[in-house]
Simulated assay, not measured.
Amino acid sequence: MNTTATPRIAIIGAGPGGLICARILQRHGITATVYDRDAGPAARDQGGTLDLHADNGQIALREAGLLEEFFELSRPEGQEMRQLDPAGTILFHHVPERGERFKPEIDRGRLRDLLLDSLQPGTVRWGHALQAVGGPAGGPRLLHFEGGTTIEADLVIGADGAWSKVRPAVSLATPLYSGVSFLEAWFHDVEARHPELAELVGQGGAAAADGERGLFAQRNSGDHLRVYLIQRVPASWITAAGLTPHATDGIRALLLERYRDWSPRLRRLITDNDGPYVDRPIHALPVPHTWEHDPTVTLLGDAAHLMPPLGVGVNLALLDACELALAIARHDTLAEAVHAYEQTMLPRSTEMARLLDGAAAELLSTELPDFATAGGH
């Protein structure tokens, strides 16, 4: 891109997609500013561990010049995967070979720190909660933030996730509840405080299901474990039971009843957690999700193609961000770049979304999953 005009590029959302987009742009001499609603990088927990795949997420890290640093921070042993039945019997066990690097794990927080540290100082502006994108379709666009701040931009990139505030500028689509809900539980100092569970899960992930309910446990760095209890329930199942999301004892009692036929060992992944549960109903965008090309606004990651959490979300977000940044660097105008990016991204995301449409229910299946594609978030 001819950078003499210095286009004003605003990226909304300091998740992996937004940050790696800014990083690759900067490597090509193009300035972009990232706006995020959080007060700072440590404002909230970043979530569990991610497996970044060689054929998408790692491609973006290579373009960002961060692949070797990623490998140093990642946990290749996290590729271990176990499938159990509700009695606790191991049905399938994948142990990664020495040197296997197809999809090593990394904690979300560590990945975010890696990306933040790679950016020029001042790239991310914290405490900017977007309310809406205004201005004419031909630009300049007006970013309206909470508190009354308004900023002009020539290109707005929505990397702000499932409930994107940028999406309404190009699409009326909203995420729909999948019928499947996750309940997240945390375990700390697992080798000392929960040694039996550490042994049960191993160094990677362990899954079990009985057709109506399931769980997925994953080892995180820092001697932590996260467990996702998976149920086919109404989105409001906690309040429908007369409970609040903070009623840990009441929710635990309800879960123990629902998982009453599971082995005592697996039920400890429900009862022995440290702290409250976190309710995570699973939503997805309608399939296909496309929009009319707009030269001043585009989307990437979950803002563009929210899908069930089956190991592709962050990987696709990173690949989207990489391809968009490279398109901006290689085309003469932002309009040409956005058009070229969407010509590739929209068909790819539509194909993947069709494959995963309704697939959240597969997390409850008693059939052995394909761990080459499942296991990350």
Rank of each mutant, 00 (worst) to 15 (best):
Pro76Thr: 00
Val166Tyr: 02
Arg265Phe: 14
His305Ser: 08
Leu84Val: 08
Leu183Arg: 14
Ala206Ile: 05
Ala253Pro: 12
Gln79Trp: 00
Gly57Asp: 05
Ala173Cys: 14
Ala207Asn: 15
Pro309Met: 00
Ala162Val: 11
Pro16Ile: 09
Glu80Ser: 11
Ala192Cys: 13
Ser236Gly: 15
Gln218Leu: 15
Glu336Tyr: 09
Leu324Gln: 04
Gly139Gln: 00
Ser263Met: 15
Gln203Thr: 13
Ser178Phe: 06
Ile59Glu: 10
Lys165Gln: 15
Leu52Met: 04
Ala206Gly: 09
Leu355Ser: 09
Arg75Ile: 06
Ala162Phe: 10
Pro347Arg: 09
Met307Phe: 14
Glu105His: 15
Pro264Thr: 14
Gln131Ala: 03
Ala192Pro: 14
Glu351Arg: 13
Trp262Ser: 10
Thr239Met: 04
Gly18Trp: 02
Ala359Cys: 13
Gln231His: 07
Gly313Asp: 10
Gly211Lys: 01
Leu115Glu: 01
Ala132Gly: 14
Pro76Cys: 00
His293Asn: 08
Asp55Tyr: 08
Arg330His: 14
Arg232Trp: 08
Tyr177Arg: 14
Trp186Gly: 15
Pro195Phe: 04
Glu367Asp: 10
Leu319Gln: 01
Val170Ala: 08
Ala207Tyr: 11
Asp320Gln: 05
Phe71Pro: 02
His194Gln: 14
Gly99Trp: 05
Gly15His: 04
Ile12Glu: 02
Leu319Cys: 07
Pro96Ala: 09
Val338Gly: 10
Ser171Ala: 08
Ile9Pro: 09
Ala22Val: 04
Ala241Val: 07
Ala198Asp: 13
Lys165Tyr: 09
Leu318Asn: 02
Ala247Glu: 11
Thr373Tyr: 07
Arg354Ile: 13
Ala353Thr: 10
Phe187Thr: 09
Leu368Arg: 02
Glu362Trp: 07
Arg167Glu: 08
Arg27Met: 06
Phe371Trp: 00
His128Tyr: 06
Gly88Tyr: 05
Gln79His: 02
Gly139Trp: 00
His283Ser: 14
Thr350Asp: 12
Asp223Tyr: 13
Thr296Pro: 08
Ala10Pro: 05
Ala39Tyr: 09
Ala329Asp: 04
Asn2Phe: 03
Ala359Val: 11
